[in-house]
Design a protein around this nucleic acid. Structure first.
Lengths: 226, 226
DNA sequence: TTGTTATTGAACAGAGTGTTCATTATTGAT
DNA sequence: ATCAATAATGAACACTCTGTTCAATAACAA
């Protein structure tokens, strides 16, 4: 079914005026009505996801909560899935900058900070950013959230982290074990992030960075003499 | 809104006759029409979750796919959420038996099998069971699944596993680090299970048990001399 | 101020929901 | 094989939500 084709394209004034700006080199400001509507919908979405879960939210609910006309919603979004997807993509785009910093990481550098008991700066930055987006992340990672976002976050943030700390001996290891090794640690760090957000971010970003580093040097079986 | 109260209670003949059985001590068999309908709905649910995701499934879709009348669906389930929840609970109930075996585990025993390169029997059993339920698990853990099931599986299966391997020194550690330590490994093992199911369970249950054990003795930072 | 455009409120057909009911078909047990 | 019990069926119902259109109004950037 070509259901996506039957939908008329939503062309936000934001993007169009942004292009025009480059063309006409004029100070371009977006229409405040649009940003206001979108902000209100974002808040309404987060609140309702926490209260009832994404599935049972209706477009009516969102608009009532955001104090907007239902037509306004459809001016900017196809449906509630498109609304959620938009905000998810914004966060994912923001996270790209940390991926870059992760790629030129190595175990020696981590250990250098570890022995000095200093948190890795980029890890602190990352937890800072996650705290900024805590309301959204709490909703979207929680029981009323989106099942696809956790894996996205894991692959984006944690995937690169694992690649950089992956032991050299496993880099060229073709056995299936390596895949599980990567899945193991990527999921593990997503779990740490989720735990932090779910429990209300009691620890500071510096503390979390140190905890994340410490977990790299822990081995459950270490208590037993080999 | 007392919406749950307004729903009439669904009393499956299964449970009632089960009670009567204890009372009258008669060989009790459930109505085959019911089990047939529920099985058809289970298959339909799994298929449609894979194809379109749970959110966009309608009761109509389920009944069409299961070749059932819509009224039959409402004879047994309140709504599609209740349908999914029922099957989720069945799997969770099955998993209880592994929790028991996990509680009387300890690191020494694991190491004993580890040095002999033998998989822990209960781990093999568990991966065997997961393979039995692979179709359901693949659907419910996948992108069209239920966001609440992963955490349930993690807490049930992996939570107990971690408690038994938790290093003695952390058992009485009151610092928040321990919480993240547990979250770390519980999420990690859920990630391994999910990876296995998502990639079509290429490895045997014995291989997976060995991989899970090996991951207990791995430490990313081990390549660096302290 | 002025032209533009986002928002509003109303209306619409269509789809899905959850329920009821009389009828038919299966079932388990005698 | 028969029979009472009950699950399945198909139809109908009011209801909610959807996604769209439209004219009127309000807010905006310049």
């Amino acid at each position: 079914m070509p259901e996506t084709l039957s939908k008329r394209p939503i062309m936000p004034t934001v993007e169009l005026s942004a292009q025009e700006c480059l063309h006409e080199s004029v100070s371009c400001t977006v229409d405040r009505r649009i940003t206001r509507s979108k902000k209100a919908l974002r808040i309404a979405l987060i609140e309702l996801m926490e209260e009832r879960g994404f599935d049972s939210i209706t477009v009516n609910d969102l608009c009532t909560r955001a104090d907007l006309n239902r037509g306004t919603f459809y001016n900017h979004f196809h449906d509630k899935e498109n609304l959620l997807e938009t905000f998810e993509n914004e966060v994912m785009d923001d996270l790209v900058r940390f991926q870059v910093k992760m790629k030129d990481l190595n175990l020696k550098e981590i250990l250098f900070f570890q022995v000095k008991k200093k948190p890795l700066p980029f890890l602190v930055e990352m937890f800072d950013y996650l705290r900024e987006e805590a309301a959204f992340l709490h909703a979207v990672l929680g029981p009323g959230g989106d099942i696809r976002f956790g894996p996205r976050l894991r692959d984006s943030v944690c995937g690169n982290l694992i690649q950089s700390i992956l032991h050299e001996r496993y880099r060229k290891d073709p056995t299936p074990f390596v895949n599980y090794y990567v899945a193991f640690f990527a999921s593990a760090y997503l779990g740490v992030i989720t735990q932090w957000i779910e429990t209300g971010m009691q620890e500071s970003s510096e503390e979390m960075a140190l905890i994340a580093m410490r977990l790299l040097f822990i081995r459950p079986g270490e208590s037993i003499k080999l």
